[in-house]
Simulated scan of single mutants.
Amino acid sequence: MDKPRSGLAWLEMRRGQPGNASQLRRLGLGEIPLTHDAFHGIQPWRAATHLEELLMTCGILLAVDK
């Protein structure tokens, strides 16, 4: 990620909104598998898509051609 702070800023700006921190927490607890298929079933979908893209940019999740 060229600008890691932008990912952190995204989380901070949306603090308290449904989906953001809870998705990260659920990933950390293993409740959501770290797969692209898992992200496609998460709501709210926009937050899930952005988080998926951040994880790909960081190299945590394998990049895919959309």
Results as ranks from 00 to 15, higher is better:
H50I: 08
W45S: 05
E52R: 00
N20C: 14
L55F: 12
L29P: 02
A48V: 10
R5F: 14
K3T: 11
R46Q: 13
P44A: 06
R25W: 04
T49Y: 09
S22M: 05
I42P: 00
Q43W: 05
H40M: 09
R26S: 12
W45Y: 10
V64S: 11
R14P: 00
L34Y: 13
H40R: 14
E12Q: 10
A9G: 10
R25V: 01
G19S: 05
L54C: 02
Q23K: 11
K66E: 12
R14K: 08
M1P: 03
A38P: 00
G59D: 08
A63T: 13
G59Y: 02
H36F: 10
I42G: 01
G19N: 03
G16I: 08
L34K: 12
L51I: 09
L24I: 15
H40S: 08
S6N: 13
T35E: 07
A21D: 07
Q23P: 04
A21S: 12
W45I: 07
L8A: 10
D65T: 15
G16L: 04
M56K: 07
A63K: 15
M56I: 09
E12D: 14
H50C: 02
L61K: 03
V64N: 06
A48D: 05
A48Y: 06
R46Y: 11
P44Q: 06
E52Y: 02
L54N: 00
A63N: 14
G19D: 01
A21N: 14
L8Q: 12
I32N: 03
A38D: 01
I32M: 12
L27I: 14
W10S: 00
I60K: 01
P4Q: 05
V64P: 02
G59T: 07
I60R: 07
M13T: 04
Q17G: 04
P44D: 07
T57W: 09
M56N: 11
E53R: 14
Q23C: 06
H36I: 05
S22A: 13
S22C: 10
G19Q: 00
P18L: 11
L24A: 06
P44E: 09
W45N: 04
L29R: 15
K3D: 08
L55M: 12
M1N: 14
L51M: 08
G19I: 01
R26C: 05
H36D: 15
P4F: 04
G41A: 05
H50W: 12
A47L: 03
A47F: 12
G41I: 03
G41Q: 02
L11P: 00
G41C: 02
D37P: 02
G30K: 10
H50A: 04
K3N: 13
M1G: 08
L62K: 15
E12K: 13
G7N: 09
G30Y: 09
Q43C: 01
R5H: 13
H36E: 11
S6C: 08
G30V: 07
L34R: 09
P4G: 07
I60V: 11
G41T: 02
L51T: 01
G30E: 08
L61H: 01
L24H: 15
E12Y: 14
P18W: 14
G7Q: 11
G19R: 02
D2G: 01
Q23F: 08
W10Y: 10
L54Q: 02
E53P: 03
R5I: 13
S6I: 14
K3G: 05
G28F: 03
T49M: 06
E12L: 15
G30C: 09
R5M: 10
A21H: 09
E53I: 04
G59Q: 04
